[in-house]
Design a protein around this nucleic acid. Structure first.
Lengths: 195, 195
DNA sequence: TAAGTAAATTAACAGTGTTAATATATTTAA
DNA sequence: TTAAATATATTAACACTGTTAATTTACTTA
């Protein structure tokens, strides 16, 4: 029964597509089994034939959003010279993606995950996402001996924390209150990681 | 009618005390109008005579927790020499407070705040909390010309972001997975802000 | 084509936040 | 001091959410 598998995957995709649409549009607060099912064109109970619970479904969107974000970031960073400059460019582009879609930021970093066991891979994907976006350039820095391995480790960590930290305050705590201040802060803080 | 005011404040305090207890114990997920009211010894509807909604009540706890946190941090940092060393000490102590009470971290940084207008002061209190804990020492650094004003500004920002960033990953995304790794990461990242 | 299986839907329940209707205290004025 | 007026608290009820159970519909296959 390979058809069964194909059909099941298709159904899952309908629900995932619906969830993604709502998440990007009205945000996480608008995501619930009934709105998703309606958007997907099914009854809300049908959803439970394909997903353990709604968190499960919602976290299944992560990979897609990461792909989308990566595409945008790669496009935006294209042309920037390899190494530190491009890491900076990627980082600020990465942040702008979440400013454009605050619901996706919530999903990646704020949404609770009782039942860790099953979602551990997704959680790790989220944790290392920025690193993976910059991978090439970190390797470049290592090859060219711009930074040592341990320096890179520290800078990766710092970048991870600073990007998400700034976003958290901006998107969830309205600080700084204006977008252009947010941009300045972002530039300043990303630069500070490298000096 | 000054009695009215006193009595009203007293009632508010009962509910706030109850909320704090639950928040520190079972965490934010266990906080709801019915558990709070039960703990306070009133019916859940009574709560609405004193608070606009449950978010309002929950955010009223912030000040108390900040006081408590400050006490603990001050005690722990006492004896550490003024300036950078003490800023580091305060920062890691600040972080440990939230590790001890993850529910309070959620309240401070993760909890959503529709109706910004009314809660703006609390939100700002949260934003500048670490700065205020370190205020003396930042001033010391400025007086002794250890850092310039603009350097201090950048370092304050960096510290704010790195502390909350590390906590977010540790408490909400289980990374690093072990406490001792978290501690090492914390030390490393706080130090990195100052070099 | 009818029986058996799979899938989807409707109904129902439990846990939230919130408001309305009702009951109980308390205060005030005759 | 007591009856009316006011303030406060409680119970009932509703809306919204996640989830499961019962039922119906669709599909497969003998």
């Amino acid at each position: 029964m390979d058809n069964k598998k194909i059909q099941e995957e298709r159904m899952k995709r309908y629900f995932i597509q619906a969830t993604k649409k709502i998440l990007k549009g009205e945000g996480l607060k608008a995501v619930n089994v009934r709105t998703i099912a309606k958007e997907a064109g099914y009854s809300y109970a049908t959803l439970y034939n394909y997903f353990k619970d709604i968190k499960d479904l919602v976290f299944e969107c992560v990979k897609d959003f990461q792909s989308e974000c990566k595409e945008i970031v790669d496009l935006e960073a294209k042309g920037t010279q390899r190494g530190v400059s491009r890491i900076k460019k990627i980082s600020s582009s990465f942040m702008k993606y979440f400013v454009q879609y605050p619901g996706i930021f919530e999903l990646f970093y704020l949404e609770k995950t009782y039942d860790l066991g099953h979602k551990k891979p997704t959680i790790n994907l989220i944790y290392s996402f920025l690193d993976s976006l910059c991978e090439q350039d970190w390797n470049y820095c290592l090859d060219k001996k711009i930074f040592s391995e341990s320096e890179i480790e520290i800078k990766k960590e710092a970048l991870r924390n600073v990007t998400v930290g700034v976003l958290l305050f901006y998107l969830n705590r309205y600080n700084p209150p204006k977008y252009d201040e947010f941009i300045k802060l972002t530039e300043r803080q990303i630069n500070y990681v490298f000096k």
